[in-house]
């Protein structure tokens, strides 16, 4: 609190009271109205029964753990392996997509920061940004076209004789992973770029001069500098992938269910907002716990991510 007051008074003396009040107001609105209050409301929802309108405020309108119990045990005895399985699969898929993005984006970010220059650099950046002018749903459908049974990839593969019958990329979830990885490439590239860009080129040359092979230069010199960037990129990509809805809906195979789709079903199909809220809370908490665990494992501090 004292730190906040100090920041406020510093800003007042530097930029004037008007600016300080605007920033304070905007931050307060952001944190309180857009983040905290809806979350509290949802949290409260998740501990209530799904009651008809008439009974709201009545004797049955009390807090309950029923929604969370349902996630764990379902209706009967025994564990609700179906929903828990979906959650686990969602997490695993999100981890996979995140790793895929790290693999794709690390070299791109490195080249952007240290090899490309002039026109080449600008073309690369434009090439990365332009696809994101197209909206998310359209992009997802484009991937369906790309990976469909009569799609571009099957067409080329069959024409070149790599395979004879169309491969069902959608059922194999290739389309989904490709679409998700593609959707968040930009976040990862720019996070890593920001970190790697601070690296002094002489350090790479010094390591080379001392006999280091390329992989060792990256392992010992570039990666440690890139780590905070990778961590912040990975956090964003993981959270967004685990919380994605449109891509799994459009690109997911018929047997594939994303946890967000479960939440969606509770809210919209079943009209049970309370249970939907509980499921959303579970997803949020599990993701947060997972991210903090990973940060602990890879020794990344939250301050490094905020950089």
């Amino acid at each position: 609190m004292t730190a906040l007051r100090r920041i406020f008074s510093e800003m007042t003396s530097r930029h004037g009271l008007g600016v300080a009040l605007f920033v304070a107001g905007a931050v307060l609105f952001w944190v309180l109205v857009l983040v905290v209050l809806p979350q509290i409301a949802m949290l409260d929802y998740s501990f209530r029964h799904n009651l008809p309108r008439a009974e709201l405020g009545g004797p049955r309108d009390a807090h309950t753990l029923a929604n969370y119990r349902y996630f764990l045990f379902g209706n009967g005895a025994g564990f609700n392996t179906l929903d828990m399985g979906v959650l686990l699969k969602t997490l695993a898929a999100a981890v996979f997509v995140t790793l895929l993005d790290i693999l794709i984006c690390y070299p791109i970010a490195f080249i952007l920061a240290h090899s490309a220059s002039g026109v080449g650099l600008r073309l690369m950046v434009i090439g990365l940004i332009v696809p994101f002018w197209i909206n998310e749903i359209l992009r997802a459908f484009a991937f369906r076209v790309l990976f469909g049974a009569t799609g571009v990839i099957n067409g080329i593969g069959q024409a070149l004789g790599f395979w004879s019958t169309p491969v069902d990329f959608v059922r194999a979830d290739v389309a989904l992973y490709a679409g998700l990885a593609y959707a968040y490439v930009l976040l990862m590239v720019f996070s890593i770029y920001n970190a790697v860009e601070t690296l002094d080129r002489n350090q790479i040359e010094a390591a080379r001069d001392m006999g280091a092979s390329w992989w060792r230069v990256h392992w010992r010199v570039v990666l440690p500098i890139a780590k905070p960037g990778i961590a912040s990129g990975a956090t964003m990509v993981f959270m967004l992938t685990a919380g994605a809805l449109a891509a799994p809906q459009i690109l997911g195979g018929p047997s594939n269910l994303w946890f967000t789709q479960l939440i969606y079903q509770w809210f919209n199909d079943a009209g049970d907002w309370q249970r939907g809220s509980a499921y959303a809370t579970i997803l949020l908490v599990v993701c947060l716990v997972f991210v903090f665990l990973m940060m602990r494992v890879f020794r990344v501090s939250i301050a490094a991510i905020g950089r």
């Binding site: 002094d200 002489n202 350090q203 040359e205 010094a206 080379r208 001069d209 006999g211 010992r220 500098i225």
Partner: peptide, 18 residues
């Protein structure tokens, strides 16, 4: 450069900060 019997000391030294 990694195969030559030379060692270069850079103007800004290029020590590894981490």
């Amino acid at each position: 450069p990694n195969k030559r019997p030379t060692a270069l000391i850079f103007q800004n030294l290029a020590l590894f900060p981490l």
